[in-house]
Nucleic acid binder design. Structure first.
Length: 570
RNA sequence: UGGCCGGUAGUUCAAGUGGUUAGAACGUCGGACUUUGACUCCGGAUGUUGCAGGUUCGAGUCCUGCCCGGCCAGCCA
């Protein structure tokens, strides 16, 4: 089985990235050093996809005794905000990682500009007066070479002057750019004189109004890596074609130390989930969810509120490893990691979601018995608790059937079951309302089975959870289904929002909790026995979220029975 | 349309320099155990390794062609 107790295990033990690092160490290229970085743009909430990159970068640094910094890639003042900087840092720490240092690409703006001047002086960069449209037109296509800009051969002096005036804010936005002079006929489009600087008279959340030009990703990223001493710059597959430019920039600058190298890996996709900032934002803005931390959101904050442990997320990320192929993991796999984790640590409690009254007719009037119940069979040190038992209880509606089908072995007329940690009870009769719905079940009990034991060795086929009616605490419980009905939302080119599941959340009211559950702190996850893992909302003590259900064999049987019923025999 | 990267059970991943019956997990099915139809344990099933050729004693691995998918023509990252 998989080790979920640490974030550094993998199913394969190795992968192409770690292989490369080992080879680099062996060759001595790195001078014995390994350094990675997590470089988010502060323009949104981290989600499960980011978790993969975070885990990868931080765990690789840890495995190789290296360093991993958190670097905010804040080169676009139009979309970035300080608030996201805080959120991202908090979420990384929640996930379980501590950056060796928190740095900002904007800290390097001076150095980056100085290098741009070097490039100009070397005749490798020029100021282009073309607007975006003209530039696009002249870039050519996949099959046709581009056309040189009419401004491509300006003198070094003129370029220097123009760039200085761009920086000084003399020109309107979009009127000029600084471009690398590479090759407008290059087969790699990224190499057709890429833009290094664009004019933006925007307020930057950190540098304020000091700058009127901002570096592009391609100009900032590799050099930031180099400044920090990053050895392995891990990024997602779509930057593959940028690697050539990444290397070009570094090669043409006078850099100390080893040159960082970029390696690409597939980003994480999950079924029934979307990891696009754009789509996540519209979910929030259109009110389709309650916010970035809605328990249905794949954001780290959403998962946290839902009750996903950071440890399980780390184990999952480690397990899936890295690949060069874009794929989609089944969300069930993530859920299985969540179950595995909670199974070991979550306290067992009893809660009835859809209550049905059960009266024990031969129970002594008014008698209350305090029963001992095991807190966690997987962890004896978790001890026991007292649960009050009386003659009037609530059981789950699903646990009683008047006319049970085959393989249903819970309660039905004449049948005996165990009430967990309580007594064996036998159904003697039931009451219905005028519409025929069962409103109450009557039982007799066997006093010798106290604690759920069977002194005479007789067996029952089912053990039910229950809550004493007189002691029950009422609450609301939110049940969640998939946020998207499509396994691959938007994959066929449609708007992912078209496949949003209108029933992704069902809030049950009047749920009955055993009394001790009132003491569970907000944010904590317990197991409601036989039902699943549930997280108490950190802000609303009267709300519980179903993190994930238990594996449910009976549900599978029902599914199969329904299927075979709708199909001709044989 | 050109280039780059890929294509291995239902799914996601493994299979040193070509070397026995291509493995694992999740899912699924069956059984054991059980004071959770959970957990745990045991077992079964599912593959023309995208297709077609070629090299070789031997190809998932190397070569060629084709097919399919992803990415690239932002002054986003």
């Amino acid at each position: 089985m998989t080790d979920t107790s640490s974030g550094s295990t993998s199913n394969s033990g190795t992968d192409f990235i770690r292989e490369k690092i080992k080879a680099d160490i062996a060759s001595g290229r790195l001078g014995g050093r390994v350094q990675t970085r997590f470089p988010p743009e502060p323009n949104g909430y981290p989600h499960i996809g980011h978790a993969k990159a975070i885990c990868l970068n931080f765990s690789i640094a840890a495995e190789f005794g290296g360093v991993c910094k958190l670097r905010f890639d804040d080169t676009n003042p139009e979309t970035e905000e300080a608030s996201f900087v805080d959120v991202i840092q908090e979420d990384i720490r929640w996930l379980g990682y501590e950056p060796d240092e928190v740095v900002f690409a904007s800290d390097y703006f001076d150095q980056l500009a100085a290098w741009a001047v070097d490039l100009i002086e070397a005749g490798l960069a020029y100021v282009d007066d073309q607007d975006a449209e003209a530039m696009s037109l002249n870039r050519g296509s996949f099959t046709e070479p581009g056309t040189n800009s009419p401004w491509r051969d300006r003198s070094v002096e003129e370029n220097l002057d123009l760039f200085a005036r761009m920086r000084a804010g003399e020109f309107p936005e979009g009127s000029r750019t600084l471009r690398a002079k590479i090759d407008m006929a290059h087969e790699n489009m990224q190499m057709r004189d890429p833009v290094l600087y664009r004019i933006r008279h925007a307020h930057h959340y950190r540098t304020g109004d000091a700058w009127h030009v901002y570096p592009t990703y391609d100009w900032a990223h590799g050099q930031s890596d180099a400044i920090e001493g990053v050895t392995h710059s891990l990024c997602s597959l779509e930057f593959d074609t940028h690697r050539q430019l990444y290397d070009w920039c570094l090669e043409h600058l006078d850099l100390p130390g080893v040159k960082p190298e970029q390696t690409e890996f597939a980003r994480l996709n999950l079924t029934h989930t979307v990891t696009s900032k754009r789509v996540l934002r519209s979910l929030v803005e259109q009110g389709l969810v309650d916010g970035w931390d809605d328990p249905r959101m794949p954001t780290l904050r959403g998962l946290k509120r839902r009750g996903y442990p950071a440890e399980a997320i780390r184990a999952f990320c480690s397990y899936i490893g890295v690949a060069r192929v874009n794929g989609t993991h089944e969300i069930e796999l993530l859920e299985s990691f969540v179950r595995t984790h909670h199974n070991k640590s979550a306290l067992r409690r009893m809660a009835v979601l859809n209550p049905l009254e059960l009266v024990i007719d031969d129970w002594p009037e008014g008698q209350v018995v305090e029963l001992d119940a095991i807190n966690n069979p997987e962890d004896p040190s978790a001890g026991t608790r007292k649960v009050p038992f009386t003659g009037r209880l609530f059981i789950e509606r699903d646990d009683f059937m008047v006319d049970p089908p085959k393989k249903f072995f819970r309660l039905s007329p004449g049948r005996e079951v165990r009430l967990r940690a309580g007594y064996f009870v036998t159904c003697t009769s039931f009451d219905t309302d005028e519409s025929g719905e069962v409103v109450r079940v009557h039982c007799s009990h066997d006093p010798d089975t106290r604690g759920g034991q069977s002194p005479d060795g007789r067996k029952v086929k089912a053990t039910l959870h229950w809550v004493s009616a007189a002691h029950a605490v009422d609450t609301r419980v939110a049940l969640y289904g998939r946020l998207f009905t499509d396994s691959h939302p938007g994959a066929d080119g449609t708007d992912p929002l078209e496949s949003i599941n209108p029933d992704s959340r069902k809030v049950l009211t009047g749920c009955k909790l055993e009394p001790i559950l009132a003491e569970t702190p907000g944010g904590e996850v317990v197991q409601y026995e036989r039902l699943g893992y549930f997280a108490r909302d950190p802000d609303d003590p009267d709300l519980w979220h179903r993190t994930v259900g238990l594996r449910d064999e009976w549900a599978n049987i029902q599914k199969r029975q329904a299927k075979s019923k709708g199909r001709p025999q044989r």
